[in-house]
Amino acid sequence: MTELLEELKNNEKKTVYDPLLKDENIIIDIKDFNLYYGNKQALFKINMQIPKGKVTALIGPSGCGKSTLLRSINRLNDLLDYVRVEGDILLDGESVYDRSVDLSELRKKMGMVAQKPNPFPMSIYDNVVYPLKINGVKKKSILDEVCERSLSYAGLWDEVKDRLKENAFGLSGGQQQRLCIARAIAPEPEVILMDEPCSALDPIATYKIEELILSLREKFTVVIVTHNMQQAARVSDFTAFMYMGFLVEYGNTINIFKKPKVKDTEDYITGRFG
């Protein structure tokens, strides 16, 4: 472990990339990204390109920095004032970390789905149209349309269409999570960031969410953090394996799972540690 830390600090370790990535249309470009929580470095020199219109999974053992990396993309880590970053992340070729960036504008381009379903304490309808309302959309016809479209997309419309005005806490966990997805896609973002979206759900709800993720791929770029290797294998096109804040291996999901090039990846996938 300490050896690895030494290697990381001295920039001796190099990420192994799958060459297939070269043909893809890149939407997020992470460049030499370091992140510190106070004095502790949490991300080490991440270089990663996320392709457009695909599902990219981030896997790795607990505390490896995959959630941190995900939250760095929409700068949610900025909420903590002891966080410091180096390097840059580009969204559509524009820097996310530029000082002149308007955070709310930036985040409107990236929907986010959290680990635990986090509906707001308001009605189902208000939950879905919240991102539009804060954006100043007031016309009821537009809001109604977006609400129906997003909920249909999230596969929730038929279940809730008669009780849109009811409190969102009345839904089951899986429904709540799909509601959160509907909320994330309501403003039609470019990227959807998912932070272990199924970790709090039962297998059937998980299955439904996975189905949903697969269908989302048609319209959005999805970046998903997951603990569950099978899930990564099932839903993602590309997989990145992270370990101790370092991107160990990144490439086509089939390649990563079938013939990993790095031994750590293999150990993790086969369940030897993690």
Binding site: N74, L76, L79, L103, S104, E105, R107, K108, M110, G111, M112, A114, K116, N118, F120, P121, M122, Y130, P131, K133, I134, N135, C180, R183, A184, P187, L193
Partner: peptide
């Protein structure tokens, strides 16, 4: 998580306060 959900949805801090934090 409510705070970050609101911020992640593109709300400004003030919008988050008025729409989410204060009602809760």
């Amino acid at each position: 998580h409510l705070r970050s959900a609101s911020l992640a949805a593109g709300a400004t801090q003030w919008q988050t306060v008025v729409n989410i934090i204060l009602p809760v």
